[in-house]
Amino acid sequence: QAKLIATVSMLLGTTITISSNHWMMAWAGLEINTLAILPLISKSHHPRAIEASTKYFLIQASASTLLLFSSMSNAWFTGQWDITQLTHQTSCMLLTIAISMKLGLVPFHFWFPEVLQGSSLTTGLLLATIMKFPPTILFLLTSPSINPTLLSTMAIASAMLGGWMGLNQTQLRKILAFSSISHLGWMSIIIAYNPKLTLMTFYLYSLSTSAIFLALNTINTLKLSTMMTAWTKTPSLTAALMLTLLSLAGLPPLTGFLPKWLIIQELTKQELTAMATIIALLSLLSLFFYLRLAYCATITLPPNSTNHMKQWQINKLVPTLTTILTTLSIMLLPMSPMIPTIL
């Protein structure tokens, strides 16, 4: 019952935000979303979960307040409540900060790994994908008004910090949180030049991340050490997980290569070759920990003695959704010729 209410509220909040033209409606949708996810974060009643939900609430409330203040100041100066008519300079700056806080862009990223670590894998999946959709749409709608230099700086910082801070993590949820921050950098860098490409990147990122979260949920793994011994449970899923991780890293010929390829191409077209080079090089940081995860996922024997018991192989059926998402997150690259018709 509670899960149903939370899910319906989340869908309602997301729908209200993405379909509204008025700032107040968009704000209301974001608030509904925030309130819907809070019970899901804190449902385990573990101190870590309570801490995560408190942090999430405080950050989202602050961001919503800033967003409301930004829209009100814009309405005060211009008389416009329309989302696409954000023309006042200060309002644009405040809105950028508010949405960056909601998304977890650097330098407002500190809350995200902690919140994800305190949540279950399924809630983490919602936080990393669905909950980022409404703010991303608001970014898209206001992209003509946002300062591209500021956004590019934040994007490069996100790609750098996301890769850098993920290097020494052993908790899978934290690694996926830093991966999310890194991907947000890729989405933000292109938003001022080609918003549709940002949306496509978000969709493909959500696809791969969902596949990874669901696979980890199926094999019941939360950290690297248990991941090393999880291959005995469902070997086929673990092998597919390795490919999905490499796809998220953006290696060809997997799906994840497509958005990075198109973003670099678009940046080069805009004569931002230096920026394209920097962000491409920064993705090598993320690649390192994806490769480490992929290695741990498919390793046959741990390199050192482990305290974990070997898991018996069980004939556990992999959920159909996990199978579909994993397949899509690996094999969508041949669809790339269709992209010019979409963008």
Rank of each mutant, 00 (worst) to 15 (best):
residue 1 Q to C: 06
residue 2 A to R: 11
residue 2 A to L: 05
residue 3 K to N: 01
residue 5 I to L: 07
residue 6 A to L: 05
residue 7 T to D: 02
residue 10 M to Q: 09
residue 12 L to M: 12
residue 13 G to E: 05
residue 14 T to Q: 10
residue 16 I to Q: 05
residue 19 S to D: 04
residue 19 S to A: 10
residue 23 W to F: 07
residue 26 A to Q: 10
residue 27 W to Q: 02
residue 27 W to G: 01
residue 34 T to D: 03
residue 39 P to W: 01
residue 39 P to A: 07
residue 47 P to S: 09
residue 50 I to E: 00
residue 70 S to T: 06
residue 75 A to G: 00
residue 79 G to W: 09
residue 82 D to Q: 13
residue 85 Q to W: 05
residue 88 H to C: 13
residue 90 T to S: 12
residue 91 S to C: 04
residue 93 M to P: 13
residue 94 L to H: 05
residue 97 I to S: 01
residue 99 I to F: 07
residue 99 I to G: 08
residue 102 K to L: 14
residue 107 P to T: 03
residue 109 H to S: 06
residue 111 W to S: 10
residue 117 Q to Y: 07
residue 118 G to H: 01
residue 121 L to T: 11
residue 127 L to H: 04
residue 127 L to E: 02
residue 129 T to M: 09
residue 130 I to Q: 06
residue 132 K to R: 13
residue 134 P to S: 03
residue 141 L to F: 04
residue 152 S to C: 12
residue 156 I to C: 07
residue 165 M to N: 09
residue 165 M to S: 13
residue 169 Q to E: 09
residue 170 T to R: 08
residue 173 R to D: 05
residue 175 I to Y: 10
residue 176 L to A: 10
residue 177 A to Q: 05
residue 185 G to I: 07
residue 187 M to V: 06
residue 193 Y to E: 08
residue 200 M to C: 10
residue 201 T to G: 14
residue 203 Y to T: 15
residue 205 Y to C: 14
residue 206 S to T: 15
residue 213 F to M: 13
residue 213 F to L: 09
residue 218 T to L: 03
residue 228 M to R: 13
residue 231 W to D: 05
residue 232 T to D: 01
residue 233 K to R: 15
residue 235 P to C: 12
residue 237 L to P: 00
residue 240 A to E: 00
residue 246 L to K: 11
residue 248 L to V: 12
residue 249 A to Q: 01
residue 250 G to F: 12
residue 252 P to C: 09
residue 253 P to H: 03
residue 254 L to F: 11
residue 260 K to M: 06
residue 265 Q to D: 11
residue 266 E to L: 12
residue 266 E to W: 10
residue 272 L to C: 03
residue 275 M to L: 12
residue 281 L to S: 06
residue 282 L to E: 03
residue 288 F to R: 15
residue 288 F to M: 14
residue 293 L to C: 06
residue 295 Y to W: 14
residue 296 C to H: 13
residue 307 N to D: 01
residue 312 W to L: 14
residue 313 Q to L: 08
residue 319 P to K: 11
residue 321 L to K: 04
residue 322 T to N: 00
residue 323 T to H: 03
residue 329 S to V: 14
residue 329 S to H: 04
residue 331 M to E: 00
residue 339 I to P: 05
residue 340 P to R: 01
residue 342 I to G: 01
